[in-house]
Computed example of a mutant assay.
Amino acid sequence: MATNNGRHPTSRIAVVTGGSRGIGRDTVLRLATRGVRSVFTYHSNRVEAEKVCAMVAETGGQALALQLNVGDASAFDDFVTRLREALGQLGAQHFGYLVNNAGTSSAATFAAGTEAELDAQFAVHFKGPFLLTQKLLPLINDGGRIVNISSGLARFAFPGRAIYGPMKAAVEALTRYMALELAPRRIAVNVVAPGAIATDFSGGIVRDNPQVNKAVADHTALGRAGLPSDVGPVIAGLLSDDFGWVNAQRIEVAGGIQI
């Protein structure tokens, strides 16, 4: 494996899944301001992905977009091949940071949740990060850093999240095991748990529905729903040397929701 002394050029490259919108996009942009180049994935909207690349270029940074369905593990070998090619375009063979951010929403209740939806959520939120990170381990520098994305719904229960919330709780448990087993390579693994964020996630319900937005604000100590710009800097910060001694930790970025 490549050795990362904290100053090697490849330690300044991040792979971010789901980087074309929402929290992922803000993370890519925040990393760019810190001099970190990114290879990010998008599910299907190439136009939005290209916009993110252009926004990064405007800052003087560099980002490359690759299509990937994180819920389709059969596509991972091909993705690794394409990622190697993308890293080559950046003059690198390895990278230093991984953000497992890509996700889909579920509004299923326990009583009405179906096997199909359970399988789909498992594929995207647990199986995907588990197997994709496995595939990427040979490309991650020793001394690198991984951030997984959970949700406040792993800590508290809310109606209609009986599949989504437990899946994110599983991601938090996975994070601790990853931190333990990757410790010999000095790879730190942490998990960020956003609260209700005003994006297009879940059909844009927090962003576009005034009643939902107000309900979130009323249950949040700091009095408003979150924004992608509240979360991206935290993820970027966790990947930096400033947080080099933080490992196996859950950090909720939610303004104090449901305290």
Score class of each variant (00 low, 15 high):
Ile13Gln: 04
Gly18Leu: 00
Gly19Cys: 06
Gly22Arg: 10
Gly24Pro: 04
Arg25Gly: 06
Leu31Met: 15
Leu31Tyr: 07
Ala32Arg: 02
Gly35Met: 12
Arg37Val: 04
Arg37Asn: 11
Val39Tyr: 00
Val39Asn: 04
Val39Cys: 11
Phe40Pro: 05
Thr41Asn: 03
Ser44Tyr: 10
Cys53Leu: 04
Cys53Ile: 08
Glu58Pro: 00
Gly60Thr: 12
Gln62Asp: 11
Gln62Leu: 10
Ala63Gly: 05
Ala65Asp: 02
Leu66Ala: 09
Val70Leu: 15
Gly71Gln: 03
Ala73Ser: 15
Ala73Lys: 04
Phe76His: 01
Asp77Pro: 02
Asp78His: 11
Thr81His: 13
Arg82Lys: 15
Leu87Tyr: 10
Gln89Leu: 13
Leu90Ile: 09
Gly91Asn: 10
His94Phe: 12
His94Gln: 12
Gly96Trp: 00
Tyr97Pro: 00
Leu98Asn: 02
Leu98Ser: 03
Ala102Met: 11
Thr104Ile: 15
Ser105Asn: 12
Ser106Gly: 04
Ser106Glu: 03
Thr109Val: 05
Thr114Ser: 15
Leu118Ser: 05
Ala120Arg: 15
Ala123Ile: 11
His125Arg: 10
Gly128Val: 07
Gly128His: 02
Gln134Asn: 13
Lys135Arg: 15
Asn141Ile: 06
Gly144Ser: 04
Gly144Val: 04
Gly144Ile: 02
Ile146Glu: 01
Ser151Trp: 01
